[in-house]
Amino acid sequence: MANLFIVQAINLALAQEMEADDRVVVLGEDVGKNGGVFRATEGLQARFGDERVVDTPLAESGIMGTSVGLAMAGMRPVPEIQFEGFLGPAYDQLVNHAARFRTRTRGSITIPLTVRVPVGGGIHAPELHSDSPEAIYAHHPGLKVVMPTTPYDAKGMLISAIRDPDPVVFFEPKRVYRAFREEVPEDEYTVPIGKAKVVNEGSDITVVTWGATVFECLKALDELPEDVSVELIDLRTIYPVDVDTIAESVEKTGRAVIVHEAPKTCGFGAEVATLIQERCFLHLEAPVQRVAGFDTVMPYYKLELDYLPDADRIGKGITECLSY
C-alpha cells in the first residue's frame, strides 16, 4: 500500500499498464519530458522511452485523430488533452470517429483508446481551463465517460479504461488532484466502469454527485443537523450510468438532490433526474432537486467559487428537498 494523491494514483496506473502491455502508449502535449502540466505522467518517459511516452505537436485534433489510427493498428493509446477546454478541436475526431468506428464497420474496426482530461473549476486557472463538459460526451453513443474522485477509484478505473475495448473519456477532477491522500494498493486492480459508489449511507434523502463536488457534498453533510440522514452517491461513471444504485437508494429515501459543476440546463443531472422519475415515481415524496453550475459562461476565477456548487448551496438544496 502507498499513501497517494489522485494524480499519483493515475501515474501508478499508467506505469503499471505500460509495464504489463507494450501496446499502451501515452501521448499528448508536454506529457513526456515535462511529465504533464499536472505531473500525471511524471517519470514515465524516463522509464519507458520517448517512443511510448510521446510529446506531440500542439494540436488536439491531431492527438485524437492519430490516437484513433494507433488504436486501429492494435495499440492502446492513452492520449492526454491538457484541459477540458481544449477538447473542442478534438471533438470531431472523438465523437465522429473514435465513437463510431465499431458501429459503422460492424465491429471489424474498433478503437480502444482512453483519453485523459483534467476537468472542472476551482484552481484559479485562466479561461477555458475550468469547464465541466461531461454531459456533452455522455450524449454521444459509442463513448464511455467516467470521472473518478478518489485515488483508489482513479487507479482502478484508469486500468479498467485502458483495458476496455471501446473509447473511454477519463475526466480527472483537477481541483482534487492533490486534495487528499489515500491508501492505494501497489498491486494492479480494477474498479469497474458503470458502477456508482455509496459514499455515505443514509435514509432521509439521496444526494447524487460526481467529481470534485463529492467533497463539497461531504462538507455539506457535516454542516447539516445530526438527525438528517443523507445517502451520498458518487456516480464515478457518467455513461453508462448506474441507474440501479441510484434507484435503490431513492426507493429507500424518497427524495433526491443532484449536484454537479456543469451548467444546470442539459447537465447530466437532467438525465439522472429523469431516470429517477422513470424508475422511482411512486416512491418520490418531493420533486428531484438540482444544485448545479449556472447557465452562464464559467466566470474568471475571481468569481468561480460563487459559480461552483459549494457546501452552503448543497446544504440549502438538501434542506429544501427535505422540507417539501
Partner: peptide
C-alpha cells in the same frame, strides 16, 4: 478503412496507423 465521408479527417487515422508501424 471504409470510405470516409467527412472531408480530410481520415488523414490523421493514416498518420496514427503509420506511427504504430
Amino acid at each position: 478503412t471504409p470510405i470516409a465521408i467527412p472531408i480530410g479527417t481520415q488523414m490523421l487515422h493514416a498518420a496514427g496507423i503509420a506511427w504504430a508501424y
